[in-house]
Design a protein around this nucleic acid. Structure first.
Lengths: 340, 340
DNA sequence: GACTGGCACTCGTTACAGTCGAGTGCCAGG
DNA sequence: CCTGGCACTCGACTGTAACGAGTGCCAGTC
């Protein structure tokens, strides 16, 4: 399977033209628009080889060629260079992110920015609790038998939950419990918390024991298991660009997938360190997204990663541009988080 | 413009058939499927009148009739009775809403439930802050110059915001400020809060003045102006049912509108007391939604209204069913809130 | 051996004509 | 006021033909 330089050039040209025009590209058009230095007939021969190898295909006989998922994969792996951002984009990113007052604010601005720049669907994961440490725990008495438990993480995330106590609990006891919890838990990573919470309960004076037990179970259940991850989404309207040609005509499966938080997490919850992940069409584990591509990466203050972000679009997308934007946004968000 | 009973019956039949089949309905089919007791020719005459009055129209000559927005309006106002919920639906609602632990949880479950039952896009507004009262204000020291301001409302809403203090502030001062704020503000409606906040600042001892000033401005800005309203959304995938015939072929404007929080608020932020509002097609103030209908209502514990919820779908929707579901869900949510 | 020009072929797209039939409007009669 | 009948309209569908973009293959050239 020799794929010499020219064949690769042909593939690159096909991908670029197809992404730009959205139409199958033929041999003649190719030689006209790119300086390949050979005739259409030669290109046709190359195309035949590329097709045999599965990098491109013909929608019908007597139509031009279209890249396959495999073709895009080869393109992003070997044929494209990450496109530098335009100064305008750079400025847009900076302008967009200054003035954020809040983690919520940062996340919302980021997801909108990403959607706008890439003109695709953007997804941003809130800093993962598992990757955060406890900065402070607060118990706010609502009534004698009810507390609001508020946890503030170093990443800026704040989670709260109403706790129904087994018995009326005086204010002093609440103060004691607050102190106990903070003494033992502040500074610990949330992923390491469960055993510590257990320990706090066991070490607590017996008259606090019942209340502490409820508290701890709520703490574990809510903060570690249930709510663990949050997600923001923007730009779904961008799915309708490309007039129903993308996504083989039906947005249905895509929209369905985007409604499932679990699915979204799988999408952008990064596995490996800070690499940019690119899933093209069939490479997606999620069936509903077999017609889409996802570009995602991790972000966080400095070198640590606390969450993921990315975009989802048609397989026929501008990979170099998208990759550049996703990385740049992730970097800026990381810097922003580092400042807090 | 005499619209006698039979003409109204014809209109009702047209609406019902069109909603069910999604196809223009002709005179012959009508008499077959409904017991009108007259011949197709008579129905045709009635149709001609209905068309003249603007209640129905023909997509093309020699096609059946389709209701106009005006026709739907007449239908919901005078021709339909709210459909009682099926026991199954009733059970679904109850099952879905038990076990909610949180305001967040309630809202999320509600919006999903509503989307599922109506098979349309559901929108739920969080209890409006303007309609809530302060239950508690908490100041959590993060560092000597940083506080987390947490406000808990009686509706269960919790808002927080990071505050950058003008100067390092000792813990005792923070305690004092917390006490001051709570003394003056707990129990007040948030819409009445601004002047009170002002008063608290002015009455506070001079050494707390600078910190209190920043605090109060953050309080006012964030909690009253900016974040005021929150919204949850679900069921966008339902827009793709009805195969692009609804919404005149393009989801674009709808999806765009749904991304704008302001727009959503306008949609379901109710004006009048507890009436159910129905906006059909052109009646929508928002241009992007001229091809859609919105059914919304207020909800809240007991008779008071703290927020709105509703659904958005094609003008060609099952109004009686949708209205019944929206109202029922609103009522259940109200009861749920009343229990807290 | 690699490239090229030429050529026959495929097949989707477009245009046009013709038929079918659902549905209408109108009218004369009960 | 209702009804049956009838002529008419017009979109949907079908079949045919011309068009053309694009291909694969082959013989010829460097």
């Amino acid at each position: 399977m020799g794929l010499d330089d020219r064949k690769l050039a042909v593939l690159r040209a096909i991908v670029e033209d197809y992404v730009a025009t959205q139409e199958p590209v033929g041999s003649k058009a190719l030689v006209e628009r790119h300086q390949l230095g050979v005739s259409p007939a030669t290109v046709r021969n190359d195309m035949a080889v590329l097709e045999e190898e599965g990098y491109i295909r013909q929608p019908h006989t007597s139509a031009g060629r279209v890249p396959t998922d495999r073709g895009y994969r080869l393109f992003v792996d070997r044929l494209s260079r990450v496109k530098p951002l335009s100064p305008a984009e750079r400025r847009a990113i900076e302008r967009f992110l200054v003035g954020a007052v809040d983690l919520d604010d940062v996340v919302h601005r980021t997801v909108r920015l990403l959607a706008q720049l890439t003109r695709q669907v953007a997804v941003v994961q809130y800093p993962s609790l598992a990757r955060s440490s406890v900065r402070h725990l607060e118990l706010v008495p609502i009534s004698t038998t009810r507390l609001m438990l508020v946890m503030i993480a170093d990443t800026g995330r704040v989670e709260q939950r109403l706790v129904e106590l087994p018995a009326p609990t005086p204010a002093d006891d609440v103060t004691d419990m607050r102190r106990l919890l903070n003494e033992k838990l502040v500074g610990t990573r949330l992923s390491d918390t469960p055993p510590l919470v257990q320990a706090v309960v066991e070490e607590s004076p017996s008259h606090l024991r019942p209340a502490m037990t409820t508290l701890s179970s709520v703490l574990l259940e809510t903060l570690v298991e249930r709510h663990e991850e949050r997600i923001a989404l923007a730009g779904t309207a961008n799915l309708t660009r490309g007039g129903l040609l993308d996504f083989q005509g039906s947005l249905r499966p895509i929209l369905e997938a985007l409604e499932e938080e679990v699915v979204l997490l799988k999408l952008i919850g990064e596995a490996e360190p800070s690499t940019t992940r690119i899933r093209i069409g069939d490479e997606n584990e999620i069936d509903n997204l077999r017609a889409a591509s996802v570009v995602s990466t991790g972000y966080g203050p400095g070198a640590t990663i606390v969450g993921g972000l990315g975009v989802l679009g048609p397989t026929r997308m501008d990979y170099p541009g998208t990759i550049a934007t996703v990385r740049a946004v992730a970097r800026y968000v990381g810097e922003l988080l580092a400042q807090n």
